[in-house]
Write a protein that binds this DNA or RNA. Structure first.
Lengths: 118, 118
DNA sequence: GGCTTGTTCTATTTGATATAGAATAATCTC
DNA sequence: GAGATTATTCTATATCAAATAGAACAAGCC
């Protein structure tokens, strides 16, 4: 499994790392029970600090996508199944939003608000 | 029109202001051509800095939801129509996501990534 | 001309980001 | 059980972006 970051992107490193893994999960390239590479390995491979990778992993844990334990590493949870199910619907929503001329920023902001309300 | 902020929320003020207006727009409480209260009025009413309100307004402009010009103020664009159309679909996606046990954070992150990709 | 309104400039404070080192505790392997 | 592995926690620091703030400016309106 390969974690990718964009050196030109202005998004924080830890967000890029998390996004890379989220993306793989939603695309079906990661399955429940799969182990992520250890934070130390990723840090070495990308030449970033261990804490930066762990911050990304912890965000993924907060989202419920991975399970973490010391000595064992980070493991993809069952949430990945639901995620793959949702993926098509998200694609459709994004496509429809684009067709209506609604900007990605506006769509994203609204989904965020509605998802967190109540 | 009433702009609301949550003093207890840890979300930035400008985001709360933008969210309040976005929410009104998506719910149909704002229509194309409607004028937002002037930034100075909102700043006075909420007792926040003028720049904080303008930052919120400028974000809404970047999203395409309002049109701004000096001397005239901030006016809701046609994008509000598409937004009301999308609202139901977003509600459904959020409901389905919740039913599948996917956290709001994970859903939001994924929508953001998919909407901004390509 | 005078008022209103967003825009721009400069400045400061606060918080997030990223890095670093070291100690710790749970888990696995042999 | 011994040792290695791995995430966790703690302290610390340098850098950069976010957020707030005051004042002057320029476009639009009556």
């Amino acid at each position: 499994m390969l974690v990718r970051i964009e050196p030109t992107s202005d998004a924080p490193l830890f967000e890029q790392i998390a996004a890379s893994i989220r993306s793989d999960a939603a695309a079906g390239r990661l399955r429940a029970g799969d182990r992520l590479p250890t934070a130390r390995d990723v840090a070495a491979a990308l030449d970033v600090n261990l804490h930066t990778v762990l911050r990304a992993y912890q965000d993924l844990r907060d989202e419920g996508l991975v399970d973490m334990r010391r000595g064992r590493g980070a493991i993809i949870t069952d949430a990945v199944v639901a995620l793959a199910d949702l993926r098509n619907e998200i694609d459709e929503l994004v496509a429809r939003s684009r067709h209506l001329g609604v900007s990605p920023e506006l769509l994203t902001s609204l989904v965020k608000e509605i998802a967190h309300d109540r």
